[in-house]
């Protein structure tokens, strides 16, 4: 078992940055279980969308000490960008953080260049109004079916991933797992892990770009 990267959110960051919870831990467990697969794909560039506290990216980078990886992260929230930068530094890894919407700033130059794409989206089904209601609700409010934000990213996944590239994403049962897995024939979807956490039934889905 690899340890969770150390991190500490400041009081200000706590007001708007998602504090790692069961979903984050499940994603880290899934990454750990996939390490050999990830290593054998010889990754060069990893990108985490909505990097938040930065623990996931720090975990991935720390788990691959022998791999020379460029870790990139984005977040719309300035406090999250700062928290993720601090977390990376605290754990002795390099993560370059850019404040932007999804992958917008990288989309053109890193088209079909991403080896590992990570996303723990706001997945809780809510009223659409809540999706952008506040900084903190933006961390979890996913609109109808909980996939408003994920649905904005999905069309870009094949644009970002190289063929053979891997996309790991957190999902909730209510998000419609079967539909998600089959959403694009160029992506081979599978379930890496699933776990009940309180009232939530969580999944880590993996998509490999095959076409």
């Amino acid at each position: 078992m690899l340890p969770t990267p150390s991190y500490r959110l400041t009081d200000q960051q706590k007001e708007s940055v998602y504090d790692p919870a069961e979903d984050s831990f499940l994603l880290m467990d899934a990454i750990e279980s996939e390490l050999e697969v990830i290593k054998s794909s010889s990754p060069l560039i990893a990108l985490e969308i909505g990097i938040g506290s930065g623990v996931i990216s720090a975990f991935l980078a720390k788990s691959l000490p022998s791999v020379s990886l460029l870790s990139l992260g984005t977040d719309v929230n300035r406090d999250a960008c700062e928290a993720a930068t601090t977390t990376a530094r605290k754990n002795g890894v390099r993560v370059e953080v850019v404040r932007c919407d999804l992958a917008s700033a990288f989309l053109s130059r890193l088209a079909e260049s991403i080896d590992i794409l990570l996303f723990n989206p706001p997945y809780v089904p809510t009223d659409e109004m809540e999706v952008d209601a506040s900084d903190l609700s933006r961390c979890w409010a996913g609109g109808a079916r909980g996939i408003s934000t994920l649905q904005r990213l999905l069309p870009q996944v094949t644009e970002l991933l190289r063929i053979g590239g891997l996309f790991y994403v957190v999902a909730l049962k209510e998000n419609g797992i079967d539909q998600l897995l089959k959403h694009n024939e160029r992506l081979r979807g599978s379930i890496v892990m699933e776990r009940r956490a309180g009232i939530e039934y969580l999944y880590i889905l993996k998509f490999e770009r095959i076409l």
């Binding site: 370059e96 850019v98 932007c100 700033a105 989309l107 053109s108 130059r109």
Partner: peptide
């Protein structure tokens, strides 16, 4: 921000921008 990152950023996402690079 490292210059490495600068190399990968563009503003093509802006309205009416064709390459937005460098």
């Amino acid at each position: 921000m490292k210059l490495l990152t600068h190399n990968f950023l563009s503003s093509r996402f802006l309205k009416n921008v064709t390459t937005g690079y460098p």
